[in-house]
Design a protein around this nucleic acid. Structure first.
Length: 927
RNA sequence: GCGGAUGUGGCGUAAUUGGCAGCCGCGCCAGACUUAGGAUCUGGUGCCUCACGGCGUGGGGGUUCGAGUCCCUUCAUCCGCACCA
């Protein structure tokens, strides 16, 4: 009987499903292991072969851990709130929930075909009210919490109110005021300044085309990541989460987790901690007005030759002199109308204007001109900088452009050419800092600044609070209502606040979000509901917890389940979430930890980022209307027949490359008949061939429908089987690297599958011998076990596939059909190719599935002779010695052909401990 | 500009972590078989050379008996951040 993967795979997938083989229990005497994939957004396009890459890797690991005796949690779900379903709803009027449900069904079908060992009973969907009830609940906890800097953790807001009542923390500049004297609205406003979820007027990235605000990481190069629409800055009342309170912990705790350095660096970068000091400058002629700046280089304070304010700085209007007013106003208008995108595009272009006002140097009391310039960002630090053109390249460029003085205060550079930014050298021209090294001068300067009350040592972060509202329909409603302008969160018993039905998924005529169209909200007449919904990342920030106890309706996840499963042990997903999801999920984890709801401070111990699988696009080259020329015939002379056939007078050098469906191209050879049928317009296509074939061009591009380079996993499974697909995806290369998909290579894996099958069969019959295995067979097996176990544990899944092939090749050569070999082989291959492994396992006579088998251990004794084996030539013969082999006598050693003088000296009168031999030559002897 | 990664045959890759570079697979070449196929099997395949032999892990330098692997330097490609004071 031949290897019939279709039947085998169908059989075992059905078996696993009916027997709930991969159901994970929340209690077990076995050690636990939690393997998690980043759950997908179920898009309408379905999965392409790139999507399952990470899932296959995690599935291999999960199955391996089960065989190693672990109680494994390996769940899957859907991040099912999101923009595409809503865009589709706007276009078609179809409820996003219907779209989403259809897409999920399609995803499930595709995933099932690949034979994953997910515990589907624990499936979560972020758009399911039973799930988002708890997303809303966590939001409420955030609203009801504040960050206590003293204890360095989040606490219930009541503890803050208590401190306000006892005035241990001031809540107002007026010290005589009592907390209870404040009106409800005033109290609410004060508390909003402390709550971890708060409402404020914030500069947001507004995308008019999408009709919503976007997070910083959703904006790339000034346009929206999705759709590529322009984004503008706009002041809006918005819900935000105070992630900045966690900046330090998010930064420091990176050291304790096993994530790739690139992700950790990206997060460090994003958090952007910088240490320095604030410093105030008095404004000349304006009694009491001060400009506060932040600097990381207080050592260069004597090099300040002007100040630059952001155009939006609040003092600009006030201090601008009459003479300069016109210029300043023109510049402010220019800066305002310059979009974010334009500003980024010409970073090199230096613009600014002089206010006419002067600041006084805090030490020298010199007059320093105050300028405005859009190289200073309103959103960072204080929106004002002390310009030190001698030692900051941006200030230098500005000074050069506007002919402002450049002072040298750190020795070592040549300021006539460029600024000297390096943080090393001796301080000069700087009064009390003279002669100090930069590092010491920084400390001294801060000390003096603090002592004189001019400023304070300070840490700044680049990280901004996370804007939490979206003016969108398809998201979790924010569970807030307003009474007399004061926001209140819904009581827990009212959760979930269901996403209401609306007549249209568009903003209202008055520009309010779609939720303003809601009709069936329970207290619609009594209160005003919040109309924005939560951003896409809300549901994904805690989903790993819900898998632990997916059906709980009393709490987000049962405490016992959380205590049992703890962190994710292995998390696999794309690197594109580095500063989005992966930061937010850490933030929520820390917050829930602070409230004592979970025992861990980090969501995932180990993170692996699988690389992207790109598409290999194929091109045909069109000349004229329906004439296609083979790649290497472009520009060559045409034969008389070809001229006749095409009706051309000569070859046309103007070719139009067109994407062609990769499924009708094999090894760059176009199936011309299939091409004619592919599209009606090509049915009369004429081809100019080379060697009787049409050769296509190819290029690596992102897999997408429009490029006709999408390869679907379903097609691969149909043609080669799920096991072959699994093996091939792993075989393609290191998991973390991006690589193009190339269907050609899968035939190698497919051959391997048949060879493996044949190993257990003789013709149609199962052919297994119970004879003891030979030493050689055992060596092959144990070598393979050792390699496979090592490969899996170091996530080198690609080399495992090679190792299986080597093993099967060797056993085929040995004609090995011994149970003692083939039984363990079925187990070690099971994580990779579970269907065939199960089938072989049952054909070996086992009643239980392979999931309950034990991964075999290596018996090193079969491998010893393989370990350190060096040929040594002496007496004209070659003998093999192990590194620790001391069997040579001194006399024998002297007969060994020694090629290195250096080695010989060791020999004099000493017994050797270790000989190191390479290339039949002794190269070192340890005595 | 800053940070992270990657450079090995025609291609995807491997190298017990400092020990005979190129395992395994694709492709290609030759042969066998044949119900002529996009099938299967066998053998070969880094480059130069008829050969002896030489050269080879992006380039240059270094450490070492020995370097794809460690150090310095340089180039190329990809990814992330970017006027962050």
């Amino acid at each position: 009987m031949e290897y019939n993967f279709r039947e085998i795979e169908r059989k075992w997938q059905a078996y696993w499903a009916t027997n709930e083989t991969f159901k994970a229990e929340n209690t077990s005497s076995k050690p636990k292991y939690y393997v998690l994939d980043m759950f997908p957004y179920p898009s309408g396009a379905g999965l392409h072969v790139g999507h399952p890459l990470g899932y296959i890797a995690s599935d291999i690991f999960a199955r391996y851990k089960r065989l190693k005796g672990f109680n494994v949690l390996h769940p899957m779900g859907y991040d099912s709130f999101g923009l595409p379903a809503e865009q589709y709803a706007i276009q078609t009027g179809q409820h996003p929930e219907i779209t989403t449900r259809t897409n999920i069904a399609r995803y499930r079908e595709q995933l099932d075909k690949i034979g994953f060992s997910f515990d589907w009973e624990r499936e979560v969907r972020t758009s399911d009210p039973a799930y988002y009830k708890w997303t809303q609940w966590i939001f409420i906890q955030l609203f009801n919490s504040w960050y206590n800097i003293e204890t360095d953790k989040a606490e219930p807001i009541a503890t803050l109110i208590e401190k306000f009542e006892h005035k241990t923390i001031p809540f107002s500049e007026d010290a005589s005021k009592k907390w209870d004297d404040l009106s409800d609205k005033e109290q609410s406003d004060v508390l909003l300044n402390h709550r971890l979820a708060y409402l404020s007027d914030t500069m947001v990235n507004w995308c008019p085309q999408l009709g919503t605000v976007l997070a910083n990481e959703e904006v790339k190069d000034g346009v929206s990541e999705r759709g590529g629409y322009p984004v503008e800055r706009k002041l809006m009342k918005q819900w935000s989460l105070r992630i900045t309170a966690y900046a330090n912990r998010l930064l420091n705790d990176l050291d304790g987790i096993d994530w790739t350095e690139s992700i950790k660096e990206a997060q460090r970068n994003w958090i952007g901690k910088s240490e320095g000091t604030s410093l105030v400058f008095d404004v000349d002629q304006f009694e009491g007005e001060q400009i506060e700046v932040f600097t990381t280089r207080p050592d260069t304070v004597f090099g300040v030759s002007f100040l630059t304010l952001a155009p939006e700085h609040e003092l600009v209007q006030k201090i601008t002199s009459a003479a300069q007013r016109k210029e300043i106003e023109e510049y402010m208008l220019f800066a305002k109308n310059r979009s974010e995108r334009e500003r980024m595009a010409d970073v090199k272009k230096i613009t600014g204007a002089f206010t006419g006002a002067y600041a006084l140097h805090p030490f020298t009391k010199q007059k320093l001109p105050i300028w405005i310039g859009d190289y200073v960002l309103a959103g960072y630090g204080t929106g004002a900088v002390m310009a030190v053109p001698g030692h900051d390249s941006r200030d230098y460029a500005f000074a050069k452009n506007f002919s402002l003085p450049i002072l040298e205060v750190v020795a070592g550079g040549d300021l006539s050419k460029e600024s000297y930014d390096a943080k090393e050298g001796k301080i000069i021209n700087s009064d009390f800092l003279n002669g100090l090294e930069v590092k010491d001068a920084v400390k001294k300067a801060i000390a003096v600044i603090e002592e004189k009350g001019l400023g304070k040592g300070k840490t700044n972060f680049r990280l901004r609070d996370a804007i939490f509202g979206r003016q969108r329909y398809w998201g979790e409603p924010i569970p807030v209502y307003y009474k007399e302008g004061i926001p209140y969160v819904l009581p827990e018993r009212e959760l979930p606040l269901l996403l209401p039905e609306v007549d249209k998924y568009l903003p209202t005529e008055t520009g309010e979000p779609p939720l303003a169209r809601a009709k069936d909200w329970k207290y619609k007449d009594q209160y005003e509901y919040e109309y924005s919904t939560m951003p896409g990342w809300a549901g994904s920030s805690w989903y790993y917890l819900r898998y632990m106890d997916a059906f709980d309706s009393y709490t987000f996840a049962d405490r016992h389940a959380i205590d049992y499963w703890q962190n994710v042990d292995l998390y696999i997903g794309g690197a594109e979430h580095a500063t989005g999801h992966l930061l937010y999920v850490r933030f929520w984890t820390k917050f829930l930890y602070d409230l004592g709801l979970i025992p861990m401070m980090e969501p995932a111990k180990k993170l692996i980022n699988q690389g992207m699988i790109q598409g290999m696009s194929s091109f045909v080259y069109r000349i004229g209307k329906n004439i296609f020329i083979s790649k290497n015939r472009i520009g060559t002379a045409l034969s008389p027949e070809e001229l006749k056939q095409t009706g051309l007078e000569k070859n046309d050098p103007n070719v139009t490359p067109l994407h062609v469906d990769v499924n009708i191209v094999n090894n760059n050879v176009l199936d011309v008949e299939a091409f004619k049928k592919w599209r009606d317009e090509y049915k009369d296509a004429v081809f100019i061939l080379e060697d009787g074939k049409y050769i296509c061009g190819s290029e690596v591009e992102k897999m997408s429908k429009s490029k006709w380079n999408v390869v679907s996993p379903d097609d691969m499974v149909d043609q080669y089987g799920a096991d072959a697909l699994r093996l091939y995806e792993m075989f393609l290369g290191p998991l973390e690297l991006s690589k193009p998909w190339n269907t050609n290579g899968i035939s190698g894996v497919s051959n391997f599958m048949r060879k493996l099958w044949r190993l257990y069969h003789n013709g149609d019959a199962v052919n297994i011998s119970n004879e003891p295995a030979t030493k050689e067979e055992l060596k092959t097996l144990h070598k393979t076990i050792k390699k496979i176990a090592g490969d899996i544990e170091s996530f080198s899944f690609n080399t495992s596939v090679s190792n299986f092939m080597i093993c099967v090749n060797e056993l085929t050569d040995l004609k090995c059909n011994k149970r003692a070999i083939l039984e363990p082989l079925a187990i070690i291959i099971a994580p990779y190719a579970p269907h065939i492994a199960e089938e072989l396992w049952s054909r070996l006579g086992h009643k239980e599935t392979i999931t309950y088998a034990e991964f075999p251990l290596v018996n090193e004794s079969y491998l010893v002779e393989n370990s350190f084996n060096y040929p040594v030539s002496f007496n004209g013969k070659t003998r093999f010695f192990q590194e620790y082999d001391l069997s040579l006598t001194k006399e024998e050693l002297e007969k060994v052909i020694l090629t290195l003088e250096q080695t010989q000296k060791y020999l004099e009168g000493k017994a050797p401990k270790k000989i190191i031999v390479v290339h039949n030559k002794i190269i070192n002897i340890v005595v």
